[in-house]
Amino acid sequence: MLARIAHELYWIGRQLARAEHTSRMLDGVFHADLQGRPDDPAGVRLSWDALLTIVSGEPPDDAASRDQVLRLLTLDPEHPTSVLNCVTRAREGARTVRDVFSGEMWETINTFHLGLLQRNVSAALQTGPYSVYAYVRERCGQFWGVTGRTMLRDEAYAFLQAGAAIESADMVLRMLRVALPLGGEGAEAHLRDGQALALLQAVGGFQAYRRAVPAPPNAGPVARFLLFERDYPDSVAFSIEALHNALTAADPAYRDSPAVLRLSRMVADLDFQARSAEIDGGLGDMLEDVQFELARVHSDVAQRYFGGAVQPVAAPLA
């Protein structure tokens, strides 16, 4: 398929996964924030500052207020990773890939976008953000549902899935790195346990965790769950495997693909780490390594599939 279209699809996948994770996170933190008490060390304290750090990669200059962050990350058309911006860009992308999308996929994403632009969304964000985030979750779910139901399982599908998978893995890694920073004992550990619970709720994985893991949702087991649990669809391991499978499906010569080779190694590494009782070098290093490798996968993908032979190889003259 066209390199430009594959690139567009990959980014639609990324944008929608980012929109969904951002809104789940905002929702989770909003509710945790309502219940938490600053004097309760075990209370949930996944702060608004932390949230900004997760999505933009660096902490804000000034302490951010709840309303500021909600508005910025939800409806600010200028903020590069606001939910609205992600959906707008995904919709713009969808316009250019309409010939590979099913009609229903386009309609879903178009309606999703139109819905976010309604005036009452802005009001709803102030009165009860839950309805806004529920809308985003539902529409994302609807999009992936319609996609699964109506889109041909071809290369286009694979690149869309690849984008969603790499973004999901990346978002969860970011959350883990910010919410559960290195080591710490005593009161610090309690704090991390509280954040772990908020995190779990934010990604929508609380029930899955309860069914899969007997331990209480404290920092250690939650981190392991979100990293390694191959049966949980938003874990890093699951996303990386999905990314691996998508690229394998898209590329008939996948054995020569640097991205696929790198991913195979990552899948094996994660599997090995999951079996060992302790993580060598601590959780922080591990998260950093995985995220670094993912960034390299991203550039491998861009080079191999989206370059579209711009750089020609020397061709002999006939």
Binding site: D251, F306, G308
Partner: peptide, 25 residues
């Protein structure tokens, strides 16, 4: 059921027109 291309997707080499795909020209 055909590709929708823009100018940047098309390239002419040796008097033959190609599209740039994920698998090369």
């Amino acid at each position: 059921g055909v590709e929708l291309v823009e100018a940047s997707d098309l390239v002419v080499r040796d008097s033959v027109c190609h599209i740039r795909t994920t698998r090369g020209l």
